[in-house]
Design a protein around this nucleic acid. Structure first.
Lengths: 154, 154
DNA sequence: TGTTGACCTCAACCTTGGTTGAGCCAATAA
DNA sequence: TTATTGGCTCAACCAAGGTTGAGGTCAACA
């Protein structure tokens, strides 16, 4: 009954593609970028450890959240490269991930709240709104037009 | 007292740069993309209507929210091209903008909440988590590994 | 004995969002 | 009168995140 799917065997790239929906070109690309890695079989074909599926899933989610691959790479650097990650390994990485998402969302929400304030005040105007006020009044108060660009970047 | 800053005169590109912090190369680029426009003076130099500053500010904010320039362009298409936008014009555009931001944030929050659920369950595991489950159990229930990619994209 | 399918490499190309640099023009300041 | 300043155009380049295509290898099927 359970014999026809081995849940410990490594995967071919074709299986990884079918399971994740990520095309070979992207898997190769992620490998070049150091986000995933694979071994080779006797015919020089990639074999993937099953826990690579988790990395790939996180890449998919991360992409949809707009997280650059380099950030994901930094996150994955917390995972062991030479053995299957343990429960604790994943959890540790998860906490970093979660902190990063929270920080990111905080910035986005601040920005959106400020802008919503501007919309709420009925103006969306340079005259009365700090977020949208890189000139006019501000100009008379100092050198400072570049308010928008001094904030931390999302 | 108020004589030395004319608040109705058009702006040179240098003034726009000083007030927004956006370099000429980017302003040229936005113009090529149809996001902003300018007239020319007698020497073929750009002159900007003051309301272009609002567009530019929205571009800056939009960029930080990760909104593609093409989306901003679609938003700006609601504004009149041949005259200065009225209060009502800006408000109408603001409502579109706000709806779009809300939708975007909703998607991001759902995604993050799902992922946080996975983290909360202590697993971040393919075994028990729908978000991170493009294989294993699911595979035995149908064709379905590509769950992650079937959801609406952020 | 094909030929089909799965996989490989490498180079070229694509889109987005710009920047950099060369070469030119016009107004102004020393 | 010659910089210097401020602007212009156009082409080339960059990084990220890939895709596409050419050309090759291997195993398995008819």
């Amino acid at each position: 009954m359970d014999g026809h799917v081995d849940t410990t065997a490594p995967l071919t790239i074709g299986e990884v593609i079918r399971r994740t929906g990520v095309p070979a070109s992207a898997l190769h690309f992620y490998e070049r970028k150091g986000l995933v890695f694979s071994g080779r079989d006797g015919y020089n074909q990639r074999i993937y450890a099953r826990h690579m599926l988790r990395r790939i899933s996180l890449i998919i989610i991360g992409k949809r959240l707009g997280i650059p691959l380099s950030d994901l790479g930094a996150l994955f650097a917390e995972l062991p490269a030479n053995r299957e990650p343990t429960h604790e390994d994943w959890q540790r990485m998860s906490r970093s991930w979660h902190r990063q998402l929270q920080e990111r969302r905080r910035i986005l929400e601040n920005l959106e709240r400020e802008l919503t304030g501007c919309i709420g005040c009925g103006c969306l105007s340079m005259k009365a709104c700090a977020l949208l006020n890189p000139d006019d009044e501000l100009q008379q108060e100092g050198p400072g037009p570049v308010r928008l660009q001094r904030r931390p970047t999302a």
